[in-house]
Design a protein around this nucleic acid. Structure first.
Lengths: 194, 194
DNA sequence: ATTATTTCTATCTACCAGATATAAGCTATC
DNA sequence: GATAGCTTATATCTGGTAGATAGAAATAAT
């Protein structure tokens, strides 16, 4: 599955729920799929052009002018199912917090602590947002998509909770560090072992 | 923090542990930091060139020839601490599994189940790898870095466990779906609500 | 010694993320 | 009710990155 196909999948999927303009696509993806997916204009507009050329999508409303929205064609629906059936490609991990903590010996224990606390705080915010989304879903807004949306919300909750638990693990480990005064964090530490 | 600075941070950090060639850097980053960080040649070599120009890193061994390794200079160590102190930038989420499940109505319940099972299986593998890494760490390989490495391993464990728990949630939700026969997954479903 | 094969190192290209530009509606003030 | 300023909506542009590919050195095989 080529890289850009991933964007096509998201765009076709969103249009399968409701016709939208390119701008609206970005907004919807950000708001509804935001906690596990993201697209930028630079991906969406080329993808729409390509999809239109292939007849998977049609432009509706005053062309040339603005606020033209795109609609899924029958071929587009078929293509969407094909794309969804392909194996997902996982993106490369890049966790800036863990990178900093791995080199925590250079950064110093206090800064490490702050980093962990901030991360925990963000995770708590996300957990609250997921619970709110779950409550809103219970009011029955999404029709047939509801159980599937629930699955993605559950993922957000589990992930946020795991981050909170890990933060507490990390704080405990950092606390044991302080007991041994060891090297001052701002002076040159000895060359690392190995 | 510019984007390429992220790579500089990883490169300087790795070199702070031991001098290495560009190729070895890639290997080390993949093996040791692999579960939360990744770099490609296309990032590492330009970063090394830039770091050398700025005097943060020096080329050691037979220049011109091969197997030249890079060493951190004193200025490089200072720079590394600066970079580590900057706020981490979080990368955009792109979870292909959740994307597919969100549009599960188009994909069909059976394919969804398979997707979840595969994800759980991968998470179990990762959990085992993390536990092995923790055991190896207990044998005392990394010197002063040990507690920090432990923190990143704990993150891997928590994350893997969360994925496993979520997979079980998801399977339960999918099971309730089957009870209502609803629409056949391969025939055109009615337009989604909203 | 010479060729084949693997490993190590570096460059090159198509594509993406985010910033920036442009256009359309909306509000307020005269 | 006209016009200037402001906000929202839409599209393009550019620097930078990922992964593929090329090239060089060493090792192994014959």
């Amino acid at each position: 599955m080529a890289r850009s196909d991933q964007t096509q999948t998201a765009v076709l999927g969103a249009l399968s729920i409701m016709p939208m303009s390119g701008y609206a696509l970005r907004e919807e993806i950000k708001n509804t799929l935001g906690h596990f997916w993201s697209e930028s204009f630079g991906q969406i507009y080329p993808a729409l052009a390509e999809l239109q050329r292939s007849g998977l999508v049609e432009r509706q409303g005053d062309a040339g002018g603005r606020s033209s929205s795109y609609v899924l064609t029958a071929a587009g629906t078929v293509r969407l199912r094909e794309l969804l059936a392909e194996p997902p490609q996982q993106n490369k991990p890049r966790n800036g917090v863990l990178l900093r903590l791995f080199f925590g010996h250079q950064l110093g224990p206090e800064a490490c602590r702050r980093l962990v606390l901030e991360t925990r705080s963000r995770a708590e915010t996300q957990l609250a947002a997921m619970r709110a989304a779950r409550a809103e879903l219970a009011d029955g807004n999404l029709g047939e998509n509801s159980p599937f949306a629930l699955i993605t919300i559950a993922a957000g909750e589990r992930s946020a909770q795991a981050t909170i638990d890990w933060a507490n693990d990390a704080l405990a480990i950092l606390a044991t560090l302080d007991e041994v005064p060891a090297t001052s964090p701002l002076r040159s530490p000895p060359a690392a072992a190995r």
